[in-house]
Amino acid sequence: MTTTKITKRPSAPASASHHAKTSAPERKKWGYTVLAIVFLAIMLFPVYWMINASLQPNGTTLETSWLPLKPDFSGYATAINEQGGNLGTSLIISLGSVVLCLAIAAPAAYALAYFKVRGAGVVLFAILISQMIPGIVVANALYTAYNDLGLLNSIPGLILADSSHGIPFAILIIRAFMNGMPASVIEAARVDGAGHVRAFWSIVVPLSRNSLITAGLFTFLFTWSDFLFALTLTTTEAVRPVTLGIFQYIGAYVNDWSSVMATAVLASIPAIILLVAAQKYIAAGTTGGAVK
């Protein structure tokens, strides 16, 4: 075999060997693409399975077919009927938390990056340490405080608590961006007589738009995904985020997986939208948050 190969190669027509030379690396590259798609298919199988199971007719616990050949939307009807309000609650809490988080984090990041105020090091240290504090410790203490303050089962209570997922991260990521902002622009505005608040609002905020969007999107996702505070800081059905709704579905014996999976699909929509529509910001957030 080897000998024939060796003897064959030089005898091959020049044009053919030339053709093979240009297309072989090209073919190899597409081979990698195929391999990557196989990885992706394995990794995203659960997502496929969630969508597939959500499209099965109600009550078929025994066999979910591999393909949703006859899509049935009754699972979604049940999901929206039973969890629609919870989805709305999640949406309100997430949006509220984005507003609160940016309102607190953006000025703080500005002070840390641009003013370099005294104590900045301590604040940054505290932010890093805060990442080590287990959520259950925070929830344990907050429950008693919320009980006294009447904040249990309330939307403001959950917005405040859920923002703890986003605020430290947002400060770090916005600050990292503002560190690279030219100081001369802000100084010029200040020389022109703009006050601190105006310089911040009309110069700094527009300039750091991208980092604010990244921080806002991640805060939204963090709060939307929050389960711990939903679980511990609510005791009635009055205020119930969708994550808790799903937990209650799967807490009992499940005999209607299609509506559970339909709810799961609906609860995944923000993540899917962000991944497709805001890829640039997501990429900035993943790398920026951890290493910078």
Binding site: I250, L274, L275, I282
Partner: peptide, 28 residues
């Protein structure tokens, strides 16, 4: 290789999904 960037960013999906959603799907 072609599509490298898109495929890599789609791989992020499991990480972005709410954990309780992932738990529910894996339970099934």
């Amino acid at each position: 290789f072609p599509l490298n960037g898109i495929l890599r960013s789609l791989l992020l999906l499991p990480w972005l999904l709410p954990l309780i959603v992932s738990s529910a799907v894996w339970r099934w």
